[in-house]
Design a protein around this nucleic acid. Sequence first.
DNA 1: GTTCTAGAAC
DNA 2: GTTCTAGAAC
Length: 677
Amino acid sequence: MSWSNNLVKEIVNSKNHIIVTELAVVIADKFPKARHHYLVLPLADIPSIFQLNRSHLSLLNELHFLAHNVVEVKGACWDDFQVGFHAEPSMQRLHLHVISKDFVSPCLKTKKHWNSFNTDLFVPFEKLVAQVEKDNCFTRFPKSLKDDLLATPLLCNQCKFIAPNLPTLKEHLAKHLEDRTQKSQNYNLEKMAKHDPKDYFRDELSRKLKDKKNFIIESDRAVVIKADFPKSQYHFRVVAKEELRDVTQLNGDHLPLLDHLMDLAHEVIEKQDHLEPHHFRIGFKVNTFWNRLNLHVISDDFYSVAMKRVRHWNSFNSELFMPFHVAHMMLSLQGSIDPISEEKCKELQLKLPLHCNQCEFETNLLLDLKFHLFQHWQGREREWKQKKNLDKILKMLETTSVSEDATSNASEIGKESIEMPQKPLATPLHCQAKDQAANGYAEYVSGPPVNMMNIQNPNNPFRNTPPLNIKPLASPQPNHSGNHMAHGPRGAFFKPRGNMAPRAPRPMWNAPRGPQNHQRNSFMHPGINGFGAPTQHQGYQPVGLGQAPMFGQPMGMRHPGFNSFRPPPPTNYLVHPTPPNQTSVVSQVALTSQGARPKWNPQNANNQNRQAPTPNSISNQGNPTEKNLQNPNQSNRPYQNKTNKKSNKNKPQNPNQKSSQQKPNSNVNQPAQTQGV
DNA sequence: GTTCTAGAAC
DNA sequence: GTTCTAGAAC
């Protein structure tokens, strides 16, 4: 009978293989009688169970092992399967059935199909092995027994129901499956209902530690990460690896840990070349939401879209925020930090009025305060740029002789300084804010804009997105939601994303860039990102996308990018070819990253891809300035003796040395350190 | 009349 | 093993 050799033909074709070893293969049954139905066949020419003897016991174990593996590879549960042989096989070549117990399948058509799996006509693997061990063979059933078994009434395998015919049984089985699915869903819902969803988020920092994702700095005791919902332009957390919930769990023995956290805080501040250290606050929230001790390192502008609630402001600008040196002093003196009672905490969270942290302004409206902070920030940026221009002029004057060129350059710089948008504050800030509040915020309906278009801002959510493929675009095509902003507002005004869920954790390439970061960080964890994916059994090779799938993961559902670490190209940099004599706008951005940002000009402004910098988008540019040593965070703490590594770092002596600022190995694909980590 | 099954053919 | 179909069962 040629048809009885079909199985042999099947295993010859490697396309059918799910798993293959030197001894056996696993294929899917061509006419599955259940949702899962696989066959494990030896490569050796063993026609059927009737040729088996004790010498085949090790082979049988191999078949059973592969049965286990195919269940795992398919992401199914072993207990939901029955594994064995037909007592009266019809196809040539020994084959072990691995079939799920649901028996829901359009291929289940006859009484014989059912009874061959649900009577003694189905010989479980263990039963066969036991008989081969005992008798050194498996004997054929008498014909009368086979006929009787085939004639057995259609008894459900999950209850005592006896079906009058196969269609009724199939309907009954489908109901069983539906009930089980429903039960499983209900179980999951109940489980979720019992679980406070907040608890999940409270553990987020612990998960980040476990996943080793997005570490800016890592040491043996702590890591530095960006805050997910930054409340300022620069907001980092130094998270302790030790399982401590908050500062109230600390005692005198933890002082070395605190010192270490502070070291890391300084290290991340050191990386912020465009912001002076005294603009950072370092401290703990006494009553923190998160389940893991973390030290905040936050710039004092508090200018952020994430600053949405009064409690957000007060959590950093009241007793709820404990500056580092206070925490250190309390632990040194009394060996513990007292918690704040829940009532007091609520009172502090909602405390009004809101006092500006930079002047005497106060208001009861967060929106007023946000606009006020925006103006502070604008003013600070303006001063920063003026100072930068002044530094340029002074450096030029320091040159041995003031040549004509230098004079003309100086006048150019001076001109730039004059042309810079000037918005002198005719009235005090708080008066302006009050006027604005009275006249409405037509321009800032959602509060003051946050500088999310500044690609150097570490809090810019689009900062590390792959570069836009800069090509002329047709008119914008609406997406499914009709929200054009969903395409990403790079270069456009940032629009708060409403109630969208927080962004998923960034992929590995969100890591700090530049050679200096690799000295300490451990971003590439091959065991997590794929090269070290758990291997299965040394002896076999699952067949699929070329790599061993993770256990419990259905074949064919893996994205190649998930298990293979291939960092995307660095962001913000040129990816499309540019003619040699032509500097593209994106190339200019690349230059900027090395501290030589080109001046904006109207021609560039007309470029479709990049808007003219607003006052908001000029921050964090230019050469590093000498740091202010009078950082209030650095006083009263044991770090005063720390040398300021940065003060003399890369400081050019004259304009001619400017090019030496670029790192020897720098190129357009290698962002400089001034990228804000 | 339709549905289901068992046996023949492959 | 499946598919086809005649005939039984309803």
